[in-house]
Computed example of a mutant assay.
Amino acid sequence: MLTLSSSPVLYPLTDRAVISLTGEDRVKYLQGQVTCDIDQLELGEASLAGHCDSKGKLWASFWLAKLNEQLVLVLNNSLIERQLPELKKFAVFSKAEVEDTSDNWHVYGLAGEGLSQWLNEELEGDNQWPGGGVVIPVAAEHALLLLPASTATPDLTQGDEQEWQGLMIQAGLPDMSAEHQGEYIPQMLNLQALNGISFTKGCYMGQETVARAKYRGANKKAMFVLAGHSDEPISVNQDIEMQLGENWRRAGTVLSVYQKDGACQLTSVLNKGLESDAVFRIKGQDNSRLSLQPLPYDLID
């Protein structure tokens, strides 16, 4: 298991993309597209959120921050090719512009003991970094830092990008890739347990399916954290099998993964109600073994 550094560490992230929304209708437009309630966010605040198709299946999950002149979405860059056109589709009817602005930003992870105190000394105001940057808290003593490309990098020890992925897995935070677009409803990635879904905001794309999953108990799956060992590389979307007696049955696929020295941690969408001592393995890696880990939050419906 990974442990937090004794002081804040900066993790340069090369696999993140940034989408910006500008224009006077940006909030109104995005409010009708995503799962969180943007109207409830103050300037400088952020939320986990999802963008669904009309059937309630996710094009993307992301962190959304509300800035003075724009809204920014931070997400896995593999999602952009399919998700961006879908997000733009109805913007032509609003005074809102949706753009991939990844080249304008540098994205970092921040984590370590004392991070909150360090940020209090560095920030200009509500999560505002000097020079136009923004901090997005994602878990206790964990945050994303978005800096304009021209802004100097903070003078901190730099960590490994894969280690940041492991920290996010331990925090039970979803990170979907292109392989899983159109496959999961938001509750399957635990967005409701992470305050990423509003059930009172009104209509948005896919809202009927999301509401039905809550009020009719239609969702039977959730995202879980597994940990164990494998001597072979594990990739996103590899099949995971669960042991049933002397046999193995497909249980899900790898959503995100961290590996080091034979140890591994990963997230996967699995059936709810699994026994806590269930045994899993990576398909084709017969010597691998994985077990369920406690989530750091309550898995509400």
Results as ranks from 00 to 15, higher is better:
Leu43Lys: 12
Ala49Met: 08
Ser116Thr: 13
Glu121Asp: 14
Leu73Thr: 02
Gln128Asn: 05
Gln33Ile: 10
Leu145Arg: 01
Ala91Ser: 15
Leu64Arg: 04
Asp37Ala: 04
Glu45Lys: 02
Glu141Ala: 01
Trp105Thr: 06
Leu145Pro: 03
Leu73Asn: 02
Thr101Tyr: 03
Lys55Asn: 14
Thr101Phe: 03
Leu84Ala: 00
Pro85Val: 00
Gly131Met: 07
Gln128Glu: 14
Glu122Val: 11
Ile80Ser: 07
Trp59Arg: 01
Leu75Phe: 08
Leu73Ala: 14
Glu42Lys: 04
Leu64Tyr: 06
Glu99Thr: 12
Val74Arg: 03
Thr151Glu: 15
Leu48Ala: 07
Val74Asn: 02
His106Lys: 15
Gly50Phe: 08
Phe90Cys: 01
Ala49Pro: 01
Gln128Arg: 14
Leu43Trp: 11
Thr101Asp: 08
Gln70Ala: 11
Phe93Arg: 11
Leu58Asn: 02
Asp100Lys: 00
Trp63Leu: 13
Glu113Arg: 13
Ile80Gln: 06
Asp126Gln: 15
Asp53Tyr: 01
Asp126Lys: 14
Leu146Ser: 02
Leu147Trp: 10
Ile136Val: 15
Glu122Ala: 14
Ser47Thr: 12
Leu79Lys: 04
Ala60Gly: 00
Ile136Ala: 02
Pro85Met: 00
Cys36Lys: 07
Ser78Met: 13
Ala152Ile: 11
Asp53Pro: 01
Lys88Val: 00
Ile136Tyr: 05
Gly56Ile: 04
Val72Asp: 08
Gly114Glu: 12
Gly125Leu: 05
Cys36Val: 10
Leu146Ile: 09
Phe90Thr: 08
Leu146Asp: 01
Leu58Asp: 00
Leu146Ala: 00
Gly125Met: 11
Leu43Asn: 09
Val92Pro: 01
Gly56Glu: 11
Val135Lys: 11
Gly112Phe: 07
Leu64Ser: 06
Ala46Tyr: 03
Glu122Cys: 07
Gly44Tyr: 08
Leu144Tyr: 12
Gly112His: 05
Gly56Arg: 05
Gln83Glu: 13
Val34Glu: 06
Gln128Pro: 09
Val98Phe: 00
Asp37Gly: 01
His142Trp: 09
Gly132Phe: 11
Val92Trp: 06
Pro130Trp: 13
Ala111Pro: 08
Ile38Asn: 03
Leu75Met: 15
Asp37Leu: 05
Ser150Thr: 14
Ser78Leu: 12
Trp105Glu: 02
Asp37Cys: 00
Ser78Gly: 12
Asp100Thr: 03
Leu123Ala: 06
Phe90Met: 15
Asn104Met: 06
His51Ser: 09
Cys36Thr: 11
Val134Trp: 12
His51Ala: 04
Arg82Trp: 08
Leu123Cys: 10
Ser47Glu: 10
Glu69Arg: 05
Leu87Gln: 09
Lys88Cys: 03
Trp59Met: 04
Glu99His: 06
Lys95Ser: 08
Trp63Glu: 15
Thr153Met: 12
Asp103Leu: 04
Val135Asn: 01
Lys66Ser: 13
Ala91Glu: 08
Ala149His: 14
Leu110Ala: 02
Glu122Leu: 10
Gly132Asp: 06
Thr153His: 09
